[in-house]
Design a protein around this nucleic acid. Structure first.
Length: 427
RNA sequence: GGAGGAUUAGCAUAAUUGGUAAUGCAGCAGUCUUGAAAACUGCCGGGCUUACGCCCUUGGGGGUUCGAGUCCCUCAUCCUCCGCCA
């Protein structure tokens, strides 16, 4: 959420941002917002005057009642009218503020100056890579589906039977490999990168979704349990960022870094038929997420660190990748700056998104009310929040299986994972 | 699921029969001081206002009242006890 004061003082900047994000049509709601803001402040002036009168006269009434000097009847009758007037105006004010909130919740964040301008994914800027590792793949390659079927480690068909399309089942060494990947990533972030491990709930309430920005705009992408009014998390970002919702953090405990495993659930409504093959688009997948809370002045350094922490996993696994800086038309609404890491699928001959590292500045902190008192100041200030996948296993698994396949159709387990899997080869 | 108790600022604690949120600690600014400490003054949740000031804020929402921390309804969370259960 943007600060209404910032919007009022810099309307043309906000409009420019909306155009850069290819959301120029939202400029209309921006104008509405500013009009509501004017009305609101006018109305507050009037109601505050009436409320001041009511407070004063109420005190007078109290004095009359206490001393028994004279009658308060006239004053009470008068104040009854004032109270009705206030109630009527407050109702209008409430409606205006509700409208404002709904617009504010839907407006995207500012953009960092580094963000390249562009319409779509094609205009994202490659800022690193390709980072290659030699896997000697000079033979006819199988894709991850064929490999998974042949080795009996992945079963999409039975997943579809028990749940529906897009719910993969890992079996035998496949299950073990998945668990090894997750454990390796968590250990790496907690032991080498200074993150505190969190194991969060996989279902959250509406306030949590609103805090990170998935609600109300993207509510239709989230699984909802009507009976209990709970949502299945689309990413661990939601519960972990909301750990500190409505909290005043201490300056000395910042920055806070959390790494969390979670299953992630996504409806992917409207995406049917697009990249649906195998692991490319699924409704449930596993991910280790990194989340940071920082002082405002530290957040862009922290973003680079998160990116490095995610890259460290791929370097250790020796999986080829590249890093993109997302353009203004492709970056998500809450982020000011975002890097995507894509891993190389040699069978599909394309890059697959495996991580997204974003700085939200105070956009989520304002929604979720996460503040701290900076040292040397007494004024509460919003923290900056960031997160990055470190990483999502589904696309990572595609790249791992395909890059580590052999001419015999077996998979060599990456060196760093062997102490977690307990085997060197999947055959 | 049932019964009882609780929720007040960063933390901790007050507020006769309803009369308009008090205090301590921590933090910030200033005065004093060679400097620090102590002491004193102001600030220390949000909004409106050029400003002086004013308004709102006692877990959320609603009601009664001229006036609600206080009375009523409702929801949430925490604690205690009972019941059920992996």
């Amino acid at each position: 959420m943007l600060d209404i004061n910032y919007i009022r003082q810099n309307p043309e900047e906000v409009a420019g941002m909306l155009k850069k994000r290819r959301q120029a049509e939202d400029c209309k709601s921006l104008d509405e917002l500013l009009e509501y803001d004017r009305e609101r402040r006018e109305l507050i002036k009037e109601t505050d005057t009436l409320k001041a009168l009511r407070n004063k006269v109420s005190k007078d009434i109290a004095v009359i009642k206490r001393t028994g000097q004279g009658s308060a009847e006239d004053l009470i009758r008068e104040m009854k009218e004032v109270a009705d007037k206030i109630a009527g105006m407050d109702e209008i004010l409430g409606k205006i503020e509700k409208q404002m909130e709904s617009i504010l919740l839907s407006l995207p964040n500012k953009l960092h100056p580094d963000v390249p301008e562009g319409y779509s994914a094609e205009e994202n800027r490659i800022c690193k890579g390709p980072v290659a590792f030699d896997h000697a793949l000079d033979f006819p390659l199988m894709d991850h589906l064929d490999l998974g079927n042949k080795l009996g480690i992945l079963d999409f068909e039975r997943g579809a039977k028990i749940s529906g399309t897009g719910f993969p089942v890992y079996i035998g060494k496949g299950a073990r490999l998945e668990r090894a990947l997750l454990n390796f990533m968590l250990d790496c972030h907690t032991e080498n990168h200074g993150y505190t491990e969190v194991f969060p709930p996989f279902m959250v309430n509406e306030d949590s979704l609103r805090g990170t920005g998935q609600w109300p705009k993207f509510a239709d992408q989230v699984y909802y349990m009507n009976e209990d009014n709970l949502y299945a998390i689309p990413t661990a970002e939601v519960p972990v960022t909301n750990l500190h919702r409505n909290e005043m953090l201490k300056d000395e405990e910042l920055p806070i870094s959390y790494a969390a495993y979670s299953a992630c659930f996504r409806r992917e409504a409207g995406s049917y038929g697009k990249d649906t093959r195998g692991f490319l688009r699924v409704h449930q997948f596993n991910k280790v997420e990194m989340v940071k809370f920082t002082r405002p002045e530290e957040s862009y350094d922290a973003l680079e660190k998160i990116l490095q922490n995610a890259e460290a996993i791929l370097n250790a696994l020796r999986i080829p990748y590249r890093v993109l800086l997302l353009c203004s038309g492709d970056i998500s609404a809450g982020a000011t700056k975002c890097y995507d890491i894509e891993v190389w699928s040699p069978a599909e001959k394309k890059y697959l998104e495996a991580s997204s590292c974003s700085n939200f500045e105070d956009y989520q902190a304002r929604r979720a009310n996460i503040r701290f008192k900076p040292a040397g100041s007494s004024k509460p200030t919003y923290v900056h929040t960031l997160n990055g996948s470190g990483l999502a296993t589904s696309r990572l698994m595609v790249s791992l299986l395909e890059n580590y396949q052999t001419t015999e159709g077996t998979i060599v387990v990456p060196e760093v994972l062997r102490k977690y899997t307990g085997f060197d080869v999947i055959d």
